[in-house]
Design a binder for these strands. Structure first.
Lengths: 346, 346
DNA sequence: TTGTAAGCGTTATCAC
DNA sequence: GTGATAACGCTTACAA
């Protein structure tokens, strides 16, 4: 900490301990120190030890920016996700980030809020950092984004979607299958008159796939599908209420209802109970998402849990495999499974 | 897309469109293009227009790594947060990320899981990217981390905490005040016998500050504090149950209970109702956190909402002010307020 | 307003 | 196993 003769003030990165400083102090050349960090086995044990000492002593922190420039491959992976704080994607980010970090890579993150313009601008900004790989959510990108991706020539992963025909690595699950297993679960519990409530958010196409899985399966099982569509763009919680009360008042009163997501189901659960219906005796309720509140409701909400965390971990794993950081072939197609979380509501 | 005479293969960043390429195509020097991006007003309108054309045509993406190295200040801000997917921090990250992005900065993110070793290794890795600023959660860092921070000489912000005596910019709220306003809220509603349930997680010191606020305020109001401590390290949901049943069976049966957090409160709400108690008639319940499920419970959980999103936005704002990106003096101390969210449970 | 030259701290290349 | 040297693509400093 003593104030040594201050070196001639450099114009910019003044004061930073550099690789060269370490090299000099250790009596080796810069490239040897570089090798010490990147391919330790190619440095003799004695020098290795000496360098380690100096590094600790000087508190040297490798400048990854310089390294990235020199090698054109920074240890950064960028991810664009619709949102961070919603109930859906947080686990995916967490799994992705943790897996990456464990292998010495850093996460650059931005939200798109489902807007392809915002996605585009995030991708543009990210590419400036020459990330080692890029992870996007879903397959719908603006033409400009597609162009940048094509030119970037780095591993690309698309999560929360599954388009076998697309070139990027796909990591997703089948929404259709969600409809299937939810319907089978209810049928297995003895329910026969099963309805489905669509999402109130226009443009939620995945929810329609879940609905189709339901319709198909129920028909196979000899039932008669009954689909309710709430008013468009009603808040999901309200839409669930509306659907519940309408269905319970209808002539074709169902014994069980599958909701397009847990928000709808929660609204239904509460409104149903307020209206005096017992759940699941008068009507069973199922959701989708396994949002954090599902376990807190009374009765607990039976729902289908998407493999959110798993997708994040797998996305990172595939990226690291592509980069050769970890062993294994990075499969192009990665279809994960959802799981019925049985609680009291169905 | 035609295969032009392939230029002599460069060793590394082969093929990337560079600033120089843009400059040549536009008939100006590299520095002018650089200025076009960084201080557009110092470039004449005609050249500006010409450069814009070329940039679009060539699909030039500025290499931020090179820029970062040259200027020793990348437009990256790093944040270490205990976790991403828990109920607490997601809003803070979201607010932080969005505010940053809006001003052209990118977010580098990692989780510490409340471990100072993990925080240390994240900080070490981040510093290698010479971020423009660093944001940490809480004030407790390992000595090595403190040393790195001291030497890094970049703006540092600590969120979710508030230690006026510390040098970094502090952004937090008063846990003590949470205890105060919760107690006042219940007192205002007419409850007199008010109990407090501590967190089951050992080491949650903030929760103890909330408790002290409660004790102090209740005494001021003429009440007699009654603190219940669940078994240590019981899952919060279970701990809430245990506390509820124990308190309702005790001689000093309370009219209202403040729980150290919403998880405890939710456990209590459900267990209480299962045991036949009406809430809030037999006993009112309050939590802390305003976790996503709070609104979904029946009755809705009255709770104290911390300014999570706001803290993220403010952290980013202070950082940007420090960096001179946006106007305004960056205050050292930033105490935000919590808010009682009144629902049915109290 | 514009340009020239030098350098940011590292790694690739090639030689020893 | 080790080193000298030249990039990597940009921005600072200074000059015109």
């Amino acid at each position: 900490m003593s104030d040594e003769k201050s070196p001639p003030r450099k114009r910019r990165g003044a004061g930073r301990v550099t690789l060269l400083a370490v090299a000099r102090a250790a009596g080796v050349s810069a490239i040897t120190v570089s090798r010490y960090f990147n391919q330790p086995e190619s440095v003799s044990p004695e020098r290795r030890e000496r360098i380690a000492e100096v590094v600790a002593e000087l508190g040297y922190v490798p400048n990854l920016v310089a390294g990235g420039l020199a090698s054109a491959r920074g240890r950064i992976v960028a991810m664009v996700i619709p949102n961070i704080s919603g109930p859906i994607f947080a686990d995916t980010i967490q799994g992705f980030s943790d897996t990456l970090t464990r292998h010495g890579y850093q996460l650059l993150l931005a939200s798109s809020y489902f807007s392809s313009e915002q996605e585009e601008s995030a991708v543009r900004a990210f590419l400036g950092w020459s990330p080692a790989a890029l992870v996007l959510t879903s397959h719908f990108h603006s033409p400009a984004t597609e162009k940048m991706l094509a030119e970037a020539d780095i591993p690309l992963v698309e999560t929360w979607d599954y388009r076998p025909e697309r070139a990027p690595i796909q990591i997703g699950f089948s929404h259709h299958e969600v409809g299937v297993i939810a319907t089978r679960h209810l049928h297995g519990k003895g329910y026969r008159k099963i309805a489905f409530v669509q999402n109130s958010a226009a443009g939620d196409f995945s929810a329609l796939e879940r609905r189709d899985g339901y319709i198909e399966t129920l028909k196979e099982l000899g039932g008669e599908p009954q689909v309710f569509a709430p008013e468009t763009d009603l808040a999901p919680f309200e839409a669930g209420k509306q659907a519940m009360l309408a269905l319970m008042a209808s002539e074709q009163r169902p014994e069980a209802i599958i909701f397009a997501n847990d928000n709808l189901a929660a609204g239904a659960l509460l409104a149903g109970q307020r209206a005096g219906f017992r759940i699941p005796e008068d009507c069973a309720v199922m959701g989708f998402g396994d949002y954090p509140f599902a376990a807190m409701l009374m009765p607990g909400l039976t729902t289908v849990k998407p493999p959110a965390l798993q997708m994040g971990v797998l996305a990172a794993t595939r990226v690291l495999q592509k980069l050769g950081v970890i062993e294994g072939e990075a499969d192009h197609l990665n279809l994960l499974e959802c799981q019925v979380i049985g609680r009291e509501s169905a």
